Amino acid sequence: MKAASLLLPLLLAACASAPSARADDPSAAAVDAQLPRYHWRLDQATGQDGKRIEALFARPDKPLQLDFANGHVHVSNACNAIGGSYRLENGHLHVDALMHTMMACMNASLNALDHEISRTLAGTPAVRLENAAGTPHLFLVTAGGDTLDFAGVPTPETRYGGPGQTLFLEIAADTQPCPHPLVPGKQCLMARERHYDAQGLATGAPGPWQPLYQDIEGYTHEPGVRNVLRVKRYAVAHPAADAPAVAYVLDMVVESEQVRR
């Protein structure tokens, strides 16, 4: 049975925006340069009384995450998508015109999560970066004494040493056997490249179906479901023997369809 598919043309290109204002303080510039290099995942959060802020941990399987890019901060793993333009001034994070999607959160704890992180970002928290055992940590400290500690996870651009190439891959509903000298009976995703114009409409003929001998980071295939993915392809500088020279990282699922069997 065919399921509804969704194409998001407004997300086919990276969001362009004017750069955020920068403080003259060199330390602020150093912090600002580091922020886009990592996914910042909430590790700890305590109030002025030293107690854990439980509302911020409503999704223990998916920690709250901040991403900074193109002068904007984006919150993921809450109920709604939350974000806005930001700047650093005098050691504080200023987030302008914080925006939310309008999903109805049936779970009260997710509503509380949205409210709590929005309140923190809107409150112009103080910012500092520290390094603990090789892991960078971003601390946001509110005027009321709340302290949020985010651990940094390198972005693909940081891990692979540069920007990736954006492309669209259609993934067939079922895997196929693919010969591999080291993996007997290996099954591969079948993929072909797709092309879209600026309005999100398919253009040209799809490329040929080919076995994909590697995983796509962030993508878990469900048998019987055909997907069109927007991915980024990165060159791997020094691949191990018999390892691929490129890496694919999922950016978003553009289209999904349950294929009738």
Rank of each mutant, 00 (worst) to 15 (best):
L189K: 08
I82L: 03
T120E: 06
A97N: 15
Q165T: 14
N131E: 10
L189V: 02
M102Y: 07
S118A: 06
P177Q: 07
V225W: 14
P244M: 02
N70M: 01
M252H: 07
G123T: 04
L88A: 05
L11C: 03
Y38A: 11
L6H: 14
R260N: 14
G162E: 14
A78R: 12
G207T: 15
P136V: 08
C188K: 04
Q258G: 04
A23Q: 00
N77A: 15
K186P: 01
V249T: 15
E255G: 06
T124F: 00
P206M: 15
A33P: 02
R41V: 13
E222W: 01
K51C: 01
E217V: 08
R119A: 09
S27I: 00
A28T: 00
Q187K: 05
E217T: 10
Q44C: 08
L189F: 04
M1T: 12
T124D: 00
A13Y: 05
S109M: 13
R194N: 03
A81W: 03
L167A: 13
A45Q: 12
I171L: 10
G83M: 01
V73T: 15
V253S: 04
G71P: 03
L138D: 10
V231D: 11
G207V: 14
V259Q: 15
V254S: 04
L12I: 02
E89I: 03
R159T: 12
A21T: 03
C178S: 13
L148K: 08
A133S: 13
V141P: 08
P184Q: 11
Y219A: 06
I216G: 06
T120P: 00
L98T: 11
L10A: 14
H72I: 01
P177G: 10
A78W: 02
E157A: 15
P60S: 08
A104D: 01
Y248W: 09
F68R: 02
D32Q: 13
A122W: 00
R233L: 09
N70P: 03
N111I: 11
H74Y: 12
V254I: 07
G47N: 04
P136A: 10
P36W: 05
G144M: 14
G164S: 09
A4M: 12
H137K: 11
L201A: 15
Q165C: 12
C105P: 01
